[in-house]
Amino acid sequence: MAQPTDAAIEVIDLVKRYPKAPVNAVDGVSFAVQRGEIFGLLGPNGAGKTTTIGVLTTSVIPTSGQARIMGSNVVADPITVKQRIAIVPQQSNLDRSLRAKEILTFHAAYHGVPRKEREARATALLNEMGLGDRAKEKLTRYSGGMAQRLMIARALMHSPDVLFLDEPTNNLDPQSRLFLWERIQQMNAQGLTILLTTHDMAEADQLCQRIAIMDHGKILALDTPAELKKLIPGGISLELRVAQPELVTVGAGNGAATNRVLDALRALPGAEKVDQVPPGAGEEEEDGITRYRIYSQDANELTGPALQAIAANGGELRDLHLARPSLEDVFIFLTGRNLR
C-alpha cells in the first residue's frame, strides 16, 4: 500500500539471491533517495548495482526485504511503480522496428499519454537531444551516442518521477559524455529524482549529491562525495613506487609474508594503514615495481621515515607523491582493491 513519505526511493534490507548462485547478489542493502536528489551507486562490476536497479524497476523479484518507489511497493504494485519510473539501460534496447520518433510516441502511448501531447513532446525532446532532423530515420543509421540520447528522450516521454541510469556513460565518447552529464543535471534541476550506477569515479563525484559505495552486494559507505573523502585519515595519502628486485625472485604473487618493505612501512609510527595497491586504470606497471599507499594524519611527516624504511629493507624508491583523495582512493581504502 502507498504510504506517505518524502523519499522517492526506499530500500530496506534488500536481499537477492539468484537461483543456483552460491552467494547473494544483493546482500542486505538499505538506503533512501530523497525527491529531487541525484544518487549514485558506485562499485565494480558484479557489486550488485544492476540487480538493485532491477528490483527497483520491477524486473527482479527480491528474495527478501522491501523496496518502494514514491511510496509504492515494487513487488505488490508494479503497475503504479512502472508508471512513475523510467530506465536508461546500459545497452540499447530500442525498438528497431520503429523509426526514431515512433519509438518516443509509442512509448508514450503505452503510458497513456494522449496523442496530441505525445506528438508535441516527442518533437520537443528530439530537438533538445539534437536529433530533430533525424526523427524519421531508422535506427540502423544511429551511432551509439545518438541511440543513448534517444533512450533518454524516450525515458522522459511519460514524465516519470524517478529516472534510473545504468552505467550511462559506459560506452560513450568524451563529447557525448559531457553532453550527458549536462543533461542529467538539467533534468535534475527540473525536479527529476535520478539514481545512477557507475564505476566511473569522476562521474560519481561530478554528478551525485550522495553516493553509496557497493561491493559484493553490500553498501560499504554512503554519504556525500566530500564526506566520503574524509573517510581517508588525514585526507592526504602518500603514494610510493618502489623497485624491489628481491620480491620478484622470492615470488611476488604471495609476497605478503616475505615483503620486508611492506612490514617496515606498516611499522612506521603514525602510519594508520598501508596498502599495496594495483596500478591505476589504463596503466601498466613495470616488472619489479610495487606501489604502496600510506594513510596518515600527517603524510608529509612520514616522507623521511618511509624513505629510510624502504632503503633499509632492500627497496629502491622510484617515485613518490602526495595524493589528494579521490573517490577512487576512498574505494581502495574501503576494499583494498581497485575499481576495475
Partner: peptide
C-alpha cells in the same frame, strides 16, 4: 539479445 521488448515490459501493465 535484442531486448527490444523491454519498453513494452516497462509499460504499466502486468
Amino acid at each position: 539479445f535484442a531486448r527490444e521488448i523491454d519498453d513494452r515490459l516497462q509499460a504499466p501493465l502486468p
